[in-house]
Amino acid sequence: MLAYVNAVISGILIGLAYAIAALGLNLIWGVMKVINLSHGAFIAFGMFAAYMSVKLLGVSVYTSLIPIFVAGLIVGIVAFFVSLYRVLNAPELTTLLSTYSLSLILIGLGTFFFTTNPRAIDTHLGSITLGYSSISYSRIIVGLISLFLAGTLYLFLFKTSLGKAIRAVSQNPTAAKLYGINTTLVLSISFGIGVAFASVSGALIASLFPFTILSGGVYELKSFVICVLGGLGSPAGAILGGLILGLLENLLSLKMPVDYMPFIEFSILVIILLIKPNGILGRR
């Protein structure tokens, strides 16, 4: 029984971290109708950035989150101009392949520098005990930081003028342009924020689980599943989807080996696509 409680709490906490990753993907899709296939690569980037900060600079992984966010933002903006700026109006195929090629370059370089050996970050924080099971403090912190980030994104999108501009462009790019909004600026910053969120989520996940340069792909798949579950274009959906996935994973892992997860997640993806392609909360 207590194992279930533990699973539920863990599920919610990790679900929030997944939600942060998914929010990054979601924002980019919402604003420029591009599915960022380099999402996983940037998650891995965040993981390794956190690892290097801890190992080389001796900084706590939580302190590294801010520079990782900023780095992600800058790298994202650059990536936008390198791979997407010229091809935004091209057929969908082109943008898919563009971001995909980015991921190849990043993962290729990453494999070269870091090899595929697994790494881990130990936060030395200990845990709270609940009867016979325990929840590590690092999970709780990850959950809280994720909530904070989600809240900040909400405030940004709804209370700042740049945020409003981003929402305007995502609803009607032409009209936004006519209102004098610099769409290039908006698009590049949106992509930057998306990448920043991916990177930070990678750092957060790295504080909890071991990872390799190839782990990004696994979390990218989870992000896709979440976005499809919650509905592409709905930030609330991303959070809802994240929680659902987190819960599902933790509850199922009580019954079956974790190796089956990608298969199950993929099956969920296909089933949702069949029954409710716009997701639970989505708009087209």
Partner: peptide, 21 residues
Amino acid sequence: GAIFAIATIGVNEAVKSLINN
């Protein structure tokens, strides 16, 4: 097309994890 692409990305991972087990 984009959704199909996502689905195919998952396919390889899914089948690999299945066969490994």
